[in-house]
Design a protein around this nucleic acid. Sequence first.
DNA 1: CGATCTGTTGACTGTTATCAACTCCGGTGG
DNA 2: CCACCGGAGTTGATAACAGTCAACAGATCG
Lengths: 262, 262
Amino acid sequence: MQTGFAYTKLANHLASIAELSETDLDLLTKMPFTIGHFSPHENLLRSGGRADHCCLLLQGYLCWQDTTSSMGQITSVYVPGDVPDLQTLTSPAAGANLRALGTVVVAFVPHDFFHDIASLSPAIAGALALLNVIDAASLRHWLVNLGSRDSLTRVAHLFCEITLRLRAVGLARDYQFPSPFTQSDLAAACGISPVHANRIIQTLRRKDLLQWQSKSVTVTDWPGLTHLARFNPDYLHLRQPLPAFPRPSPRATMEVEAPAQP
Amino acid sequence: MQTGFAYTKLANHLASIAELSETDLDLLTKMPFTIGHFSPHENLLRSGGRADHCCLLLQGYLCWQDTTSSMGQITSVYVPGDVPDLQTLTSPAAGANLRALGTVVVAFVPHDFFHDIASLSPAIAGALALLNVIDAASLRHWLVNLGSRDSLTRVAHLFCEITLRLRAVGLARDYQFPSPFTQSDLAAACGISPVHANRIIQTLRRKDLLQWQSKSVTVTDWPGLTHLARFNPDYLHLRQPLPAFPRPSPRATMEVEAPAQP
DNA sequence: CGATCTGTTGACTGTTATCAACTCCGGTGG
DNA sequence: CCACCGGAGTTGATAACAGTCAACAGATCG
């Protein structure tokens, strides 16, 4: 892990949502941090705990997981480049557990650094505020999913969102990405039972929309998956348009299947 | 509507979540605004529209309503004193419709005013940031509801949240408040069908937890309602503890009912 | 006084949870 | 090398919950 790695992750992420000058990027190079490694299911921050630093995710996935509900609802998932606990700058107490999905590497960055660069550069202050607003927009979007769509659509939508957010930071270029999630994690995120999650995955496989084997997911029919999920990426505030799906889609978007199976 | 009314609403709300000095409050007195009146179901802001002002809610209720889902999922509800579209300061495009529930009165405040006072007072900038963070925390909480609780619990939780937020700004002192919501609105917020919402309300009435008649709701058993909803108000960041429920609760929290009805 | 919106009820259907059993896999220790 | 173990994935049967459809009642308003 080179010294510049953490800087690059944050700079790329901020640049993907806001226009930053050379001077702004220079400020980021001075970022102090320490590296932390975590195993699957480990908590980086417990509900009720207070933080004086933020976690910049470098490798793997993190999620916020509610502790009050019996099923442990997951409210959001983060990919490398994200700062899941940015809101602790404003309100230091965590309302849920920040948990590792799979093994993760993070850079711990002191709150003071963010306060400093925000006061030195309005553009950076705006970009940080925008991160929080995008987080809220994702929550709203996810809320619409849980409230108004069936479980197949929810799961498909989650895969769409993760794929696109990974691609936005240069990962998952070929619609393939590591997936250390358990089916129970997926169920907790989508508000369904683990058993049902399993059956949904099988449906997605049967429809040839994606494969999930040996801790890796490959989206094999992106147009079909986005159509099924009614996925509209506007809420992610991505600045670049997305490259087309490589394979000519084999009559995608038709949802009709063999109708009966005795 | 006196001139100072809009100022008071905003000042009280900010003071309820953050410590503000006399100087800070003085800044707020200079707030420029125009008054707007809206009828039930009218949109203040349409999805995709851009705003150069924020809406300070003075009377009635507002909600964000998603337009993409068939049922029109409501993602959050606002009470007087709230500024539902504060995030348009950071990202001017709305992702959903801002809709009036019942008749409402709002004060339109230019974005520039918020930018100005935030740059003049760090305390105010912090309070405004905190409003956004609390909004996100409410979204997370509501997400846990939709994802992990059954419809009775969801509806009960919504009434708990509205009651407490009204009380926090001095309304609903006696656990009674105007309710211009239709049962379809309630259903759209809780992610259930209107027919089912109707049956849930009847259950709540039968359990003597609340009454809802002639566009007004009275919570008749606050301990029972909060227990049923597993309601924990911490996420609202209220600074004062809450006064006790007036009536000695008549054996609340027992959920057993007449078991069969032939 | 009809038109429309809201609330109410019953019958039926469909989705999803729950429970239980079993398989598969990767480790770990005898 | 094999037996064992725990976690994860898979399957089938059943039950609970919530959606849909259809009809009607009540209010409100021009």
